[in-house]
């Protein structure tokens, strides 16, 4: 589903954000990207939705060679890859319903499909009752659920989340992670970049560890810190 081969990313300012990264993620996987601030987690995600182009190396997403894709083909890729951010990126002037519908409408979707898909996604994230409210009238957790509904409305095969719980309290965090897990169970490949140790340690999913732009660890059912659960870190 996702494959990076010997990928390096050098920003114009000379920062080497990714350095010879090899990574393969299969269809239906749930993967955490962890590592210190500035180690290239967001940069890696940006390659996957073609916000950045690798300086060298190959990036494949759902069989598409993203690294040598024409600009005109980007919209099609983006409809297959949902993205969720720490700051939600909702439009304040639009209701929750309109925010979710917007993602379909701007792709030229038929009204019939909008009327079917939007309620489906709002139901999935549990916001059907609040669809007429504006983002400012919702809690942070609810806003993030709205953002997830918007990311899912095009039925993407992949959901990328960059610090999805960075602005949320523990109970909202738990809710969002349960939602992501549920989405993953339905077959969507989910990649989550996070600093949240509790979340990673509780969920016990695949953990890909970045350090200075390199992959330094990749474990099935891993922990936030290499080979250690939360309690062990505290006691050690």
């Amino acid at each position: 589903m996702i494959e990076l081969r010997n990928v390096s990313l050098l920003y114009p300012n000379g920062v080497r954000a990714l350095d010879a990264v090899d990574l393969k993620i299969e269809k239906g996987e749930f993967v955490f990207l962890v590592g210190h601030s500035g180690t290239g987690k967001s940069s890696l995600l940006r390659l996957l939705y073609r916000e950045q182009v690798p300086t060298t190396g190959d990036v494949y997403v759902d069989g598409i060679a993203v690294h040598r894709m024409r600009a005109g083909a980007i919209p099609r890729l983006r409809r297959n890859v949902g993205v969720v951010f720490q700051d939600f990126k909702l439009l304040g002037g639009k209701t929750i319903w309109e925010n979710v519908a917007f993602a379909l409408q701007v792709t030229g979707a038929r009204t019939k499909d909008v009327m079917r898909q939007v309620p489906r996604c709002l139901d999935l994230v549990g916001l059907a009752q609040k669809s007429r409210m504006f983002p400012s009238e919702l809690s942070g957790g609810e806003q993030q659920r709205a953002a997830i509904a918007r990311a899912l409305v095009n039925n993407p095969k992949i959901l990328l989340c960059d610090e999805p719980t960075g602005n949320l309290d523990p109970s909202n965090t738990t809710e969002i992670m349960e939602l992501l897990q549920r989405i993953n169970t339905k077959g969507t490949t989910v990649v989550v970049a996070t600093h949240n140790q509790a979340v990673v340690d509780r969920m016990r999913k695949r953990v890909v560890r970045l350090e200075n732009g390199r992959i330094v660890g990749d474990e099935e059912r891993g922990f936030y810190f290499l080979g250690l659960g939360q309690g062990q870190v505290l006691s050690g």
């Binding site: 005109g72 919209p75 890729l77 983006r78 409809r79 990126k89 917007f102 993602a103 701007v106 030229g108």
Partner: peptide
């Protein structure tokens, strides 16, 4: 610009934008 960024993010074509 926020709308435009989100439009691009969810896969709107430039012509549509």
């Amino acid at each position: 610009r926020r709308e435009i960024a989100i439009m691009q993010l969810v896969g709107a074509t430039n012509n549509y934008i």
